[in-house]
Design a protein around this nucleic acid. Sequence first.
DNA 1: TCCATTCATCGACGGTTGTCAATATAGCGC
DNA 2: GCGCTATATTGACAACCGTCGATGAATGGA
Lengths: 119, 119
Amino acid sequence: MSFMTTLTLTPVTEAAACCAPLTREALSADQADDLARSLKALADPARLRLISIVAASEGQEACVCDLIDPVGLGQSTVSHHLKILMDAGFLTRTKRGTWAYYRLVPGALDSLSRLLITA
Amino acid sequence: MSFMTTLTLTPVTEAAACCAPLTREALSADQADDLARSLKALADPARLRLISIVAASEGQEACVCDLIDPVGLGQSTVSHHLKILMDAGFLTRTKRGTWAYYRLVPGALDSLSRLLITA
DNA sequence: TCCATTCATCGACGGTTGTCAATATAGCGC
DNA sequence: GCGCTATATTGACAACCGTCGATGAATGGA
């Protein structure tokens, strides 16, 4: 399980960059796998809230300590969710001192969104 | 587990109808739950392929028997996935004779897509 | 140097999920 | 009615996921 994150990494931007929307033509198995991986990273209430809090924060960034109370989960759980969102290409991390600041990857959500549109 | 489908049904259109995109302001816990439920219904390779096949079919509809071979899963598994997509509000079913024809719910994917856009 | 703080990682646990085979339901033709 | 076909439902099982507490790693201050 621990090695999975380094192997199957297929950032949203890459998965979304290539191809026609979901409803244009039948998806290949590989395309479906990639898209499902991106969606799965998003398909959790805690992770959705993390993203929305980061996006709504000052300077579009937030450190872990700012995120723990709002989502009401343990620190290790929050770190875990942030890692999943990073691996999927939705967030980036910048360390400054002891703090880790998370920030939205600019086009990530949009390119995923574009894939869902029924052309 | 069996009663869950009739209880927690919150179709995409409803979940998406109300509110600002993910990144406009922090999501409430309830909003996050609803959105996560919709995304989770979509976050599976088999279900994504089912949707794309239905959308790309003649007259935008397909019966179960047309879907089994393309996705390469058992009949009961396909029925199961179709049910999940129906409960989530992405598909509708019409029975004609012994056949069950599935069809995309017109605005469903689009309203979900709109929620993901970074305004 | 030592301690406090911030964050990541590990190990464990219960709950959920995807899949199948088997069975049930229901419509159609004979 | 009988059998055949198309779907849905059930029950079971392995794999995965979200959560926690505990531990580890790194930074900064006294």
